[in-house]
Design a protein around this nucleic acid. Structure first.
Length: 928
RNA sequence: GCGGGGAUAGCCAAGCCAGGUCAAAGGCGUGGGGCUUAGGACCCCAUCGUGAAGACGUUCGAGGGUUCGAAUCCCUCUCCCCGCACCA
């Protein structure tokens, strides 16, 4: 069996020992720690990015478990929504890209793939895969509580939740524009789009000009400019239609007529009207007066209504199209009508911009960016002229828009900002207004206030994200919470709608607490009253099954509220904030969320990890190739949880070797005879500090910092420790003591090898439940640590001098500073202002007698003190370090490590001129 | 546009909040040496410049300021990344 197979079989054996070890029930008197992480949507295989998402909470769970808490870490699967419907359809249609992704990248067996024509099969298959791979990775999950969001019991729970919200008035009806495919007869989500996933839906105001009995609606994003309209534009080469819209005749492009029909209007086309016949017609609007329709090639019949109002003073396109006509001597009576003044531009900003850019005609490619420039300048800095109220454009846009709609027959039209937008089925996608849509009223100020009351009490990791949460709460608008298609729970009072995925996943952390027990109950028992009792403690007359629910109620209360929720950073603006709203609406103050940890993103070789681009490394492959411990240690050690991490195979490989080094050390330590060596106490003293710092880091979720401390910190000490051993010795009993601690400190990170080693150390129980090491303050010996630090600094100095000298050295003399310099050092180190400390020193009569020598020493000490770590300076102040003894006891070590005879003398006894430069903690070194 | 985060040596990345431990941790890469039949692994050394003494000089996106002292504090600028909704 080679090393790789050995590791795999070790991991399998440990996995078998864990089996259901992490199933946990509440116990009286035991302190709990309940953490949850956003459950996965199992529509594909896990990659290493997902791996990290679930490993961070696992490390934290394992840490608190070892500290004696009862830790609940549950997992479930979010299968609500539309994506798998689309996937299933694509597989049914033998879409080659979908087949390739699922067959080749995710390696779904052919017989399973065939069953994917049923979307439920997809989520079932991948939920099982998720559990299998999560177990491989060693996640300490209580799997008894696993569920999916379409289980009947869960649906009853969601129905109850929405019933409560509905009662409180947080769910209301409205209309909502969506992307819509006429062929599929359905709204389309991002993943259903072949093209145009970045297209945004823009809201245009239709300014209704009158042309006899007919309305000519011109679409605009800048309704305030209606005051500056000088004419309209139509494209003479386009066919327009006269159509009856809600009983009123409108004139629009043919394309527009079709779009309007999807947006809340009844449309009947009456006749075609060629664009040419419109040119020269006069139309009117109460705010713009009478204006003429002019021809312009830039008018796109497929953009909004296909008729445009012209504001040459402020719209570069309008200005130049008009100028082009006027240069031919036509319509010369029309002059721009400015209405906005903006810093940096003259009377007519559009004219300024066009002339500055020296644009000669309307076909210039720079016209788009020029338009953008003028628009943003006017929007951010412009004001309407005083006769129109002098208000900023930013405000005027909305108020004039409102005015047009309420007083002047304007309506609203939605359109994409870019095209094409195409459904997977190949059909063009339109904007459609969905009626009777249900909304969660996140805009409700009172609801926001409730969340704002909770938020300051929530612990946030890292703390910088707090402002983002605060802003999200303020900014959140109503959320369309129902869908026509997808998997999910039906809205109880309007079952034609399904509850949308982000909305049915807001308080399920409460459901975990009883998931394994509620399954035993008949779903028919799970009435709203039952949940009222279970989660809110509300009693009601004749509640059937109250006795059966009682233990569930108790279990819920023993876990809730949750301690920490983990999730990726991009979920702050939706999920993480939503769940605060839902908790605030449903649960009492004492059951509100206590903390959240926000993750960074995953990169693969420096590029964003995304299944769609094939830039993924499957977690299962990583586990098989490197081993679970290596994957875990790499993911925890390469960045803190909230930072982005980058997976690079070559770095992972070196992590693997680090674990092997650790294992070798521990196994070697088991084999040592165990005689104590002189610096054992030093090693153990340092160990106490590593315990302290590792613990503190993990309490703050700093997995990387903790690993630096627990792994590299201890390893570096061992290296020095071994160097200090006599030739051939691998150390004494301290190493064995250290190993017992070390295995436990690393157990949250690399639990497989640590279980194995824990057993090798003679323990029958699991290290996963072993007590977390506690630092023994009494074991800390500052003088030993200072002494070793002095040795290593001195050795470093000697080595760097040896490297520099071109002579063959024969001996080293180490000259130790005299007592009086120590007192100079202390005086300066202890003084408040180290600048004037030199003077303080010289006030002493004895020092004055020494004259220049003392003044020099004082200056040198000042420099040295500034260069030494403050902890060392403090240490030297707190105790009297006997340098003479430190060096004398280490003489044979020094000779061995330097390969030269070493002489240790007091500086004043040395014949060498350099010896006079000896300072405390910096002996003079002379190489002969 | 709105909001958040960032820029550190060949690369990744700590340090910044609480200014002197900072020529700046750790890792990767590269070069040299040891070990080895060889390779791998492992260990040691080097990796801004200069240096026959543990130092000195110049550096932490750019520029300016505060300070005895700035990668760290303040101001200005340039560039990069992320989220902005009906989607998990």
């Amino acid at each position: 069996m080679d090393q790789h197979d050995e590791m795999q079989s070790m991991e399998a054996a440990v996995r078998a020992r864990w089996s259901d070890a992490f199933s946990v029930d509440p116990a009286p008197g035991a302190e709990k720690f309940y953490l949850t992480v956003a459950y996965p949507y199992p529509s594909g295989a896990m990659h290493v990015g997902h791996g990290r998402t679930y490993l961070v909470p696992d490390v934290i769970a394992r840490f608190w478990r070892m500290r004696g808490r009862r830790v609940l870490y549950p997992m479930a699967f979010h299968v609500t929504g539309a994506p798998v419907i689309g996937i299933s359809k694509r597989i049914a249609n033998h879409d080659p890209a979908a087949i390739r992704l699922y067959r080749d990248l995710y390696r779904v067996p052919p017989d399973v793939l065939e069953r994917f024509v049923d979307p439920i099969e997809i989520v079932h298959h991948f939920s099982n895969e998720y559990e299998r791979v999560m177990r491989m990775a060693g996640l300490s999950i209580d799997w008894r509580r696993r569920f999916t969001t379409v289980d009947p019991h869960y649906s009853r729970f969601i129905e109850w939740q929405f019933g409560r919200l509905h009662e409180k008035g947080y769910v209301v009806r409205g209309a909502h524009p969506v992307r819509y495919c006429p062929l599929c007869d359905n709204p389309v989500g991002d993943h259903d789009l072949l093209e145009g996933d970045k297209a945004e839906v823009i809201r245009f105001v239709l300014v209704s000009f009158r042309w006899g009995e007919t309305i000519v609606p011109t679409a605009t994003l800048r309704p305030e400019t209606v005051y500056g309209v000088t004419n309209l534009w139509v494209n003479p080469s386009v066919t327009y239609v006269r159509a009856e819209v809600d009983g009123v005749p409108w004139l629009v492009s043919r394309e527009a007529a079709e779009k309007i029909a999807l947006q809340d209007h009844t449309v009947r086309i009456i006749e075609e009207v060629p664009g040419t016949s419109l040119v020269g017609q006069v139309v009117s609007h109460p705010l713009a007066g009478e204006v003429t329709i002019l021809p312009a090639e830039f008018v796109d019949p497929d953009m909004a209504t296909g008729v445009v109002m012209s504001v040459p003073a402020h719209a570069p396109f309008d200005y130049i199209a008009l100028r082009d006509l006027q240069q031919e001597g036509r319509y010369t009576e029309i002059v721009p009508r400015p209405l906005i003044s903006v810093e940096g531009y003259g009377e007519c900003p559009a004219q300024d911009a066009v002339e500055r850019a020296k644009i000669t005609n309307q076909h210039d490619t720079r016209m788009d960016s020029l338009t953008q420039e003028v628009y943003s300048a006017e929007f951010s800095k412009g004001r309407l002229h005083a006769r129109l109220g002098g208000i900023p454009v930013r405000e005027a846009r909305d108020t004039v828009g409102e005015l047009l709609i309420s007083e002047h027959g304007s309506s609203v039209m939605y359109e994409f900002d870019s095209r094409p937008v195409v459904c997977r089925c190949g059909t063009r996608v339109y904007v459609k207004i969905l009626h009777d849509q249900w909304f969660l009223t996140y805009s409700d100020e009172a609801w926001k206030d409730q969340v704002k009351a909770v938020l300051p009490e929530v612990s946030l990791v890292p703390p910088e994200v707090r402002v983002e949460f605060e802003r999200t709460v303020d900014w959140l608008r109503d959320w369309a919470c129902t869908r026509r298609v997808g998997l999910g729970t039906r809205l109880p009072w309007d079952p034609t709608w399904l509850i949308e995925p982000l909305s049915d996943s807001t308080i399920y952390m409460a459901y975990y607490t009883v998931a394994h027990r509620i399954r035993e109950l008949d779903p028919a028992l799970l009435t709203p009253a039952a949940f009222d009792y279970l989660f809110l403690g509300k009693e009601s007359d004749g509640l059937i099954g109250r006795e059966a629910l009682k233990p569930l109620r108790e279990e819920f209360l023993s876990w809730y509220p949750y301690d920490y929720r983990f999730s990726a950073k991009d979920l702050i603006s939706n999920h993480l904030t939503f769940q605060l709203f839902h908790h605030a609406a449903i649960f009492p103050p004492e059951l509100q969320p206590k903390g959240m940890v926000v993750f960074g993103m995953g990169l693969l070789n420096g590029a964003k990890m995304a299944s769609s681009k094939g830039n993924v490394f499957l977690l299962e492959d990583a586990l098989a190739e490197f081993g679970a411990d290596t994957v875990r240690m790499f993911l925890m050690g390469s960045a803190e949880p909230w930072q982005d991490f980058d997976w690079r195979n070559e770095l992972v490989a070196s992590t693997r070797r680090q674990i092997e080094r650790f294992e070798t050390t521990v196994r070697d330590a088991l084999a040592t005879d165990g005689a104590a060596t002189p610096i054992d106490a030093w090693l153990l003293s340092r160990l106490q500090r590593h315990i302290e710092r590792t613990t503190a880091s993990l309490e703050l979720f700093q997995t990387r910092q903790a690993l630096q401390e627990a792994f590299f910190g201890i390893e570096a000490d061992l290296r020095w420790y071994w160097r200090r051993q006599p030739e051939g010795s691998k150390g004494g009993s301290a190493v064995r003591e250290l190993c017992s601690v070390w295995v436990r400190l690393l157990a949250p990170f690399i639990p497989f090898i640590c279980e194995d080693l824990w057993q090798a150390l003679g323990h029958d129980d699991l290290v996963s439940f072993a007590p977390w090491p506690v630092a023994d303050a009494g074991g800390i010996q500052p003088s030993l640590e200072l002494g070793e630090e002095l040795l290593s600094r001195t050795v470093e100095d000697v080595e760097s001098i040896l490297k520099l000298l071109p002579i063959t050295p024969t001996a080293v003399e180490i000259a130790i500073a005299p007592v009086w310099k120590r007192s100079v050092f202390r005086t300066i180190a202890a003084s408040e202002d180290r600048q004037v400390a030199v003077r303080t020193v010289m006030q002493d009569a004895e020092m004055r007698q020494r004259g220049k020598e003392a003044a020099d020493a004082a200056k040198q000490c000042t420099t040295l003190i500034h260069r030494l770590p403050p902890t060392i300076v403090d240490g030297l102040l707190a105790l009297e370090l006997d340098e003479q003894t430190v060096f004398a006891e280490a003489r044979s070590f020094l000779e061995q490590t330097l390969g030269l005879p070493v002489r240790i003398v007091g500086a004043e006894e040395s014949a060498h001129p350099k010896a006079g430069g000896a300072l405390p903690y910096k002996p003079a070194i002379t190489i002969e």
